[in-house]
Structure formats: C-alpha cells, structure tokens
C-alpha cells in the first residue's frame, strides 16, 4: 500500500479503490485519457478512470463486480450442491454439519415468517443469505491485497467486494421486486389493485392519494432493500480504505492503524453477517406480504 501510495495523494488512493473495472462503450467524439478521440459510432473498451466509466453511461459492465459476484455464487452452488450430494440420513460430520446448520436456520426463519405455500421462498432465502454473506465476506480481505496484486499484472482497477457496488445490490433487490409483483398479482389478482387504491382511505374519492402513497411504499421496498446493503458495505469498505490510507502517513501510525484494522475487521464480521441476515429476512417478509390477502 505504501508502495502504491508513494506517488498518489490520499484522495487519489481512495478514489482508485472505489473505481470499478469497467468495460463498456465509449460514445463517439469522446476524448480519451491519452488524448485520442473516439471515432463516430463509439467503441467498446476498458475504461481508464472514473470519467471514462461515467461517459459510458448504461452501456457498461463492471467486470470485477460480475466476476466476484458470479464466482462467489458458484462457490455457494459448489458448497451446497456438495452438501446435497453428501447429505444422507446417517450421522453428519464436519462441514456437512455446519452447512446443514445454515440450511436449518434459514428453514426455520422462513417457517416463522412466511406462512404461504411456495417452494421458491426457502431456496431463495438460502441463496440470498449465503451469497450475500460471501460477497460481504470479501470486505475482510485486506483492501490492497487483490487490487495491488492485479495492478502488478496490468489490471488497473479492481474492487473485490461486489456488495459495495449498487448495481449488484439493486440487481438483487429488483429481482425480488419482480417476484413481489408477480406473486401479488398471482395470489391476489384484482385484490392487489384494490390494495393499491383503497388503502389507507377506503373511499373512491381518495383513489389518487391512495395510489400515490401505496406506490411510493411499494417502490420504497426494493430501494431500501438494495441501498441498505450497499450503504452498509460501502461505508464499511470506506473505513477499511481510510485505515489503510493511514499506513502511508508515517511509521508512527503503523501500529495504531494495524490495531484499528483488526478492530474494525472483527466488528465487521458482525456487520456482514447481520446485513446478509437482514437482506434475507426482508426478502421473506416482502414475499410474505405479497402472499397475504387482506
């Protein structure tokens, strides 16, 4: 970190750590970092720096977020598919025990909260809990380890915590939002429309007011869900980066910074688990609400 920070200011260091590795389409006429101008019709390329990433707009993809997110999702699949293969009615041991504990915990949480009949909710909750936990867990990897290593290999930017990318958290939240809408309409049918228009004031004259309030309430659910996870993880990551920046402030800061790093990491173990749990529970609650007919 000190080596990387020698020629950087602290603010550059922080910005560098918060920039995703972005692949996208630069619009025609854009002047690139090296002074060349993008030809008409645009060009698909790796972004160099935040300005180019912003210029790409929606037509870009965060390669690091996607790789880590899908990679960790595959880790989840591999772990639990292994469990599913090994699981039998005999005496469980070791890893099987630990994973089964998670499955049982999720199963109980779903049973306590969700009272409808839906085969999707429990596996959904398990996927969310473990996947989000794994993504959050990346926060505990020292902030410079992977980006600095990859920088030596020629990859300029790298963020290894997918859940500090709002695209990732909002992507999941929107997925859940789609499920909420789907089940609301499927289970309640016209009742869903009634719920949106006749609550909280049960009179036809209040329909516009009701509709406005209910739609805002409905939309607030996925946004709060996705942004809560993003906000917590982003803030946690930011503090890790700030503490890491302290290392470059001189030798006398090394020891306190090291202690702070350890302290924050230990506290963060709690945060990442809690955030994964909250995301899972809120998903179950929202889907449960979508299943309840008033």
């Amino acid at each position: 970190m000190a080596a990387a920070g020698e020629t950087q200011t602290i603010s550059e260091y922080i910005v560098h750590h918060l920039t995703n590795l972005t692949y996208g389409k630069l619009p025609g006429g854009f002047e690139r970092y090296d002074g060349s101008v993008v030809p008409d019709g645009g060009v698909w390329t790796m972004a160099h720096g935040g300005a180019e990433a912003s210029a790409m707009g929606f037509m870009a993809i965060h390669v690091d977020s996607m790789i880590w997110s899908i990679g960790l999702g595959l880790v989840f699949c591999w772990l639990f598919r292994g469990l599913a293969r090994k699981a039998e009615s005999g005496v469980p041991s070791g890893l099987v025990n630990a994973l089964e504990m998670i499955v049982e915990f999720v199963d109980n949480t779903v049973k306590d909260t969700f009272h409808g009949h839906n085969k999707l909710v429990a596996p959904l909750a398990l996927t969310i809990f473990v996947w989000v936990f794994l993504m959050n867990l990346m926060d505990l990897v020292p902030v410079d380890l992977v980006p600095y290593t990859l920088m030596l290999l020629g990859v300029e930017y790298h963020k290894i915590v997918p859940s500090t990318d709002p695209n990732i958290t909002m992507g999941m939240a929107l997925g859940i939002f789609i499920l909420m809408l789907y089940y609301s309409i499927k289970i309640k049918g016209f009742g869903f429309v009634k719920e949106l228009t006749m609550n909280p004031f049960n009179h036809w004259a209040f329909i516009p007011v009701n509709l406005f309030m209910e739609v805002v309430g409905l939309l607030a659910k996925p946004f709060s869900l996705g942004l809560r996870l993003f906000g917590n993880m982003y803030a946690g990551e930011m503090i890790f980066i700030l503490i890491a920046a302290l290392f470059s402030a001189g030798l006398m800061w090394m020891v306190p910074a090291g202690l702070m790093q350890i302290g924050w990491a230990i506290f963060h173990i709690l945060v990442i688990t809690l955030q994964a749990f909250i995301f899972m529970v809120l998903t179950i609650v929202y889907l449960s609400m979508a299943h309840e007919d008033h």
Partner: peptide
Amino acid sequence: MNINLTLIGQM
C-alpha cells in the same frame, strides 16, 4: 457508482 448493465447481469 454508475448504474449500468451490471444491474441486468446481476439480476
């Protein structure tokens, strides 16, 4: 912190 195709990919 741009919203982009990553959102769709993650979904």
